[in-house]
Amino acid sequence: MSGHAPLIHPTAVIDPSAKLADGVRVGAFTLIGADVEIGENTEIGPHCSVHGPTRIGRDNRFISHVAVGGEPQDKKYAGERTELVIGDRNVFREFVTLNRGTGGGGGITTIGNDNWMLAYTHVAHDCHVGNHCVFSNNTTLAGHVTVGDHVIISGFAGAHQFCRIGAHAFLGMGALTNGDVPPFTMVGSDSLGRPRGINSEGLKRRGFDAERIASIKRAYRTLYVAGLPLAEAKVQLAEQARSSEDVAELLAFIEQAERPLLR
């Protein structure tokens, strides 16, 4: 529908300051607030609300009853201008909620491209989500969580404030993590959120060959199975990183940790 004027249901309420690009569709009883920008061919389904300041890219789908751009659920928030920025080609299912950032947390919440957020997913203030992620039903991210690319989070799982979840990680159903999850790591399906190996099946599906996966497995054993103190494990990982970009990525993630590493 690019090149066509927005198609707006007569029961929708659109603030005059909102900017809707060509091909945008807005469903019945949906509210688009002030200081909202929506990119080409994005579909906002029925009974949704989009509050600003919010920037939404192109070709997104908000199925129904989605609420995005609302004020952060943080008592320290004092009405300062903060934003929600969403990329392209994302799908948001029923009752997904995405909050804007806070002044003290960087002022922005970001969602990348090509993500699927299933029903009742909640992304809190100042979170940063990468690309090609899948958040299953009732996924919950507390404030200031960072999620890398190609992360899969199973139903009823979530992350504590300020945690990081590295690229290609997998959180099992009901896993609740209160520490940083290194890239490529699989977290068990229990409330303790313990590491359970690497996400080898996911890596195969994304084209990782046997040699790359073997290097990641070796690094995982060094970090979690060998019983080494973290400082000694990092020395061995640095040696392994000389011949593996994936291990180098894993080591860089560990070096940047501000919260305890999930161990």
Rank of each mutant, 00 (worst) to 15 (best):
F184M: 15
V129E: 01
D114K: 09
D126P: 08
A159M: 14
H150V: 04
V151F: 06
H144V: 05
G148K: 07
D180R: 04
L171S: 13
M186T: 14
F162E: 14
A175E: 12
H125T: 01
D149F: 03
W116H: 12
N178I: 09
H160G: 05
A124I: 00
E94D: 15
S154H: 05
F95M: 14
T97I: 08
G130D: 08
T140H: 13
V187S: 11
S136L: 11
I108G: 02
T110I: 08
R164Y: 05
L118W: 04
G105R: 03
L118D: 09
H168V: 05
G104Q: 08
G179H: 04
G103L: 02
G143T: 06
N115F: 02
G179P: 03
G155N: 12
D114H: 15
T121I: 02
N178A: 13
V145A: 12
H160V: 00
F184A: 15
H150Y: 13
V187H: 09
G106K: 14
V147L: 11
V151R: 06
V134I: 11
T139Q: 05
N137W: 14
C127N: 12
D126E: 08
V187T: 10
N99H: 15
G130Y: 08
A159H: 15
L176N: 13
L171T: 01
N99L: 04
G158P: 03
D114A: 04
F184H: 14
G101H: 12
F162W: 14
A157E: 09
H128A: 15
I111M: 04
H150P: 01
V129L: 13
G101T: 00
M186W: 03
H122G: 06
D114C: 09
H125F: 07
G101I: 00
N138A: 14
S154V: 02
T109N: 05
A119L: 10
G148R: 05
G112K: 00
H128C: 09
G166P: 07
G179Y: 06
T109L: 05
I111T: 00
G188D: 13
H125C: 06
F95P: 00
C133K: 00
N131G: 02
S154G: 12
Y120A: 08
N99C: 05
M186H: 10
R100E: 13
C133I: 03
D180S: 10
A119D: 12
H128T: 12
R100D: 14
I152G: 10
T139S: 07
D126Y: 11
I165V: 15
M117T: 08
L141Y: 15
P182D: 13
V134F: 07
V123H: 02
C163R: 01
Y120N: 15
H168L: 09
N113W: 01
V145H: 13
A159D: 14
G155R: 11
C163N: 10
H160E: 11
S154E: 06
W116I: 11
L176T: 09
I111H: 00
L98A: 00
R164P: 04
I152Y: 13
H122N: 08
